[in-house]
């Protein structure tokens, strides 16, 4: 069990270094620094080495898996933050909870196409999943496998179009 706590502590330390690195690069040099998350890769190698060769215990694989899963969850939240994915679901929920009873029309006054759709289109353009030419949006080649997976997944789940 000691290895589990070491793994958790190592994750927290790596996350702290990542936050400092990201803030320093983003504010100090004015660069986009989502790649600062790559710090988790060498960190995983080091914790793997520590768990297998330095820290006594019988759970090296599980402890390493714990580190990877925490890092994965961190990555997903970090990406939501980085791309400013302010969730309309949360906003709807907060509006109803704080200002309810509230009508649909009153809720709609708090939303716009710019905030919900255009912002996402711009992010997709920035990430080069979409390209814009002649006033029209086109899918970039790297978007096709994702769109295919999405179609397959939604068919598997028998879902209508998402969003």
């Amino acid at each position: 069990m000691v290895q589990f706590f070491v793994s958790l502590g190592w994750y927290l330390l790596t996350a702290l270094i990542h936050v400092i690195l990201h803030r320093a690069l983003a504010l100090g040099f004015g660069k986009l620094t989502k790649n600062s998350f790559l710090i988790f890769i060498p960190s995983a190698m080091v914790i793997g080495w520590l768990l297998y060769f330095k820290i006594p215990g019988t759970l090296p694989m599980s402890a390493l898996f714990l580190f990877l899963l925490f890092s994965g969850a961190h990555f997903l939240f970090f990406m939501s933050f980085f791309f400013d994915a302010r969730s309309p679901s949360m906003k709807v929920l907060f509006l109803v909870r704080r200002h309810g009873p509230i009508t649909r029309e009153e809720i709609l006054t708090h939303f716009s196409d710019a905030e919900t759709v255009v912002n996402r289109v711009n992010t997709l353009l920035y990430e080069k999943f979409l390209v814009e030419g002649g006033n029209r949006l086109h899918a970039a080649p790297k978007a096709i496998p994702i769109a295919r997976f999405m179609t397959w997944y939604r068919r598997l789940m028998k879902w209508e179009r998402g969003g």
Binding site: R120, A139, M157, G162
Partner: peptide, 20 residues
Amino acid sequence: MESSIRMRVLGEVVRAGRAG
């Protein structure tokens, strides 16, 4: 897959094909 606006936008653009 269930609720991402970005994925839905991507799906709409891919569905439009070459014409965009």
